[in-house]
Each structure stands twice: as C-alpha cells, then as structure tokens.
C-alpha cells in the first residue's frame, strides 16, 4: 500500500490534529509543558526584567518634571529632585521589607527561610492571572509553598521550573480562603478568640473577595483586616502564613437572602497582579534538602 505524498499541507493538517489532541489532554499528561515554559521564561528574562522595572518605576508615584517653558537648569534640578525622592522611596521600601522580614523571622522562629524573588512576568493571557518569578527549584522552591509580600498573603506556587516558578494569586477566580476578621491592631492580651469570627472568602471579581455567610452578630466593620486562618487539612495553607493579611474589609452589608447573615467584602491591601518583588516562605527542611539556592533568613 502506497502512502500519499508528504506535502506541506498534509503535514500541517496532521500537526493541527496533534494540537487539537494536545489542547484537550489532562494536566497529568502535559509533562512537556512546565520544562518548556521554564525555558521560554528563562530566555525571555533578559527582556522582561528591565521592562518590569520600567513598569514598576512608572507605576510608582514618582513624577517626572514637566518640560516645556521652564528653563533648562530648573528642569534639570527638578528632575534630580524627583530622582532623589524616587531613590529615597526605594530605600524606604527596602527598609520596610527588611523590617517586615525580620519580624517574620522572629515570629516563625528558625524553621523557615525566605527567598526574595522578582516578578519577571505575567501570563500572556490575562485571564490566567498568574505571576512568574525568577526563582525555581534551583533556589529550593517547590510547589505549594506560600508567597507573601511583607505581612500580606500573595498566593502560592503552583508550578516550579528549574529557574522560574508560577504563583497562583489568592485573588484567582474560584479561590476559597478561610479567614478571621479582626481589628487592624490585634490585642496583645490574647483574650479574644478570633475563631468566632471565621469566614470563608470567595473570589467574585477582579481583586475582590466576598464572604456571604458571616453571622449577623459577629462584630466586623469596614477597615477590619481579614487574616488567614485556613487549616482545613491536607492542601491547606502552611502554618507559617496563618495570620497573614488577606485584605481589608471594605463593605459590610446585610445578606438579602438570609436575614441572620451578612455579607462582607474584602479587598487585598495592594494590587497583587502588580507586585514587583515577593517573598517565598520555604521550610528550612525543604531548603536544606534541596541543597541549592542563595540567601537564607533575613
């Protein structure tokens, strides 16, 4: 039996059929995806990193002086002033990060190490809503580790390549997080049992989480914090990040369907999709076991 001649068109049609099958494969069969993704992100890193820095700089409140009718020297002076302000802001940010990390270190004892990582990209398709960071298995990271920014919970790693990793944000649609609704400043006497104020937050829109089953008698008001209190067994959040801030309560309203309940809306303290530096909390045993990676506790 003679095979039909191999033409470009026929090869392409076969390729399309293969792509169709590949599109519908279950994730456990897509073993080729993570290494190829890691390779593409590693190649893209030299391009994406400076562009991310530009993005961060532009987003900051730093404003360039308006050029135009002012004299050149005056412009230059203003620009330098703005530059100094920008650098001072960066120093303050780094000092704040350092202080937060020291606080975390004291709180968590010596059981965890922190890997500060730069966000080098976001998914091409914004619907996916994931972030890519510049550290991977070679720095001791593994899937499931929690990612924070200061005292704010960011998400967790869902895919780890050798040099890059993917973060699933807590604001990913469909995400469920159990939190305790607490006042912004926790009482120091430990007398309040926040387990009575536990609520389950569900992501309902971009950057917005809603709890619809909060008891009407729970004393919660706008401005309170939602702190992670999610220990639902296997697959739950690591102990290290329990108590981290998920967001701030922006609205408390009666539940229109159930009079005994109320609806609480929580918004993260910062836009998680626009972070430029995050910290991965790595158990020291995992970090030691991996044997790689730079940096340790702050």
């Amino acid at each position: 039996m003679a095979f039909p001649a191999m033409t470009f068109r026929r090869v392409f049609v076969v390729l399309l059929a293969a792509l169709s099958v590949s599109s519908l494969l279950k994730s456990k069969y897509c073993v080729y995806g993570p290494p190829l993704r890691n390779a593409v992100h590693t190649v893209l890193m030299p391009m994406a990193r400076p562009l991310n820095d530009i993005t961060s700089t532009v987003r900051s409140e730093h404003e360039r002086p308006v050029l135009g009718d002012l004299e050149q020297l005056s412009d230059e002076l203003r620009y330098k002033d703005a530059l100094i302000l920008s650098l001072q802001k960066r120093v303050r940010e780094l000092e704040a990060t350092s202080a937060e990390l020291q606080g975390l270190s004291q709180r968590l004892g010596q059981d965890y190490v922190f890997r500060e990582s730069r966000v080098i990209g976001r998914s091409s398709d914004p619907s996916a809503g994931t972030l890519t960071i510049d550290k991977g298995a070679s720095a001791g990271l593994s899937p499931g580790l929690a990612v924070v920014k200061g005292a704010d919970l960011v998400g967790r790693l869902i895919e780890v390549g050798s040099t890059t990793s993917i973060i699933r944000l807590i604001t990913t649609p469909g995400e469920l997080v159990e939190v305790a609704l607490t006042p912004p400043h926790l009482p120091t006497d430990q007398s309040t049992d926040f387990r009575q104020r536990v609520a389950q937050l569900r992501v309902t829109g971009p950057g917005e989480l809603i709890a619809e089953d909060v008891d009407r008698d729970v004393p919660v008001q706008a401005g309170d914090y939602a702190r992670l209190l999610d220990d639902r067994g296997p697959g739950s959040w690591p102990v290290a990040v329990q108590g981290m801030i998920v967001g701030q309560v922006t609205k408390v309203a009666p539940n229109p369907d159930q009079q005994l309940l109320k609806t609480v809306t929580v918004v993260p303290m910062r836009s998680l999709r626009r972070l430029d530096v995050v910290t991965v909390v790595v158990p020291r045993t995992v970090a030691a076991g991996s044997g790689g990676g730079q940096g340790g506790g702050p």
Partner: peptide, 24 residues
C-alpha cells in the same frame, strides 16, 4: 510561544501549561 507563557490555575489547585489552544 503564547501558550508557553501562560500557566492556567486549575480549579483543583493544580497548574496547567499546555501547547494547543493558542497555537490552534
């Protein structure tokens, strides 16, 4: 390339990077 720069979070908590949807 677009497929490989998109990782989808799955409802079961996993992740999915696959070549196919955007390529097609």
């Amino acid at each position: 390339l677009v497929d490989l720069t998109t990782t989808w979070p799955l409802a079961d908590g996993g992740a999915l990077t696959l070549i196919g949807p955007c390529a097609l």
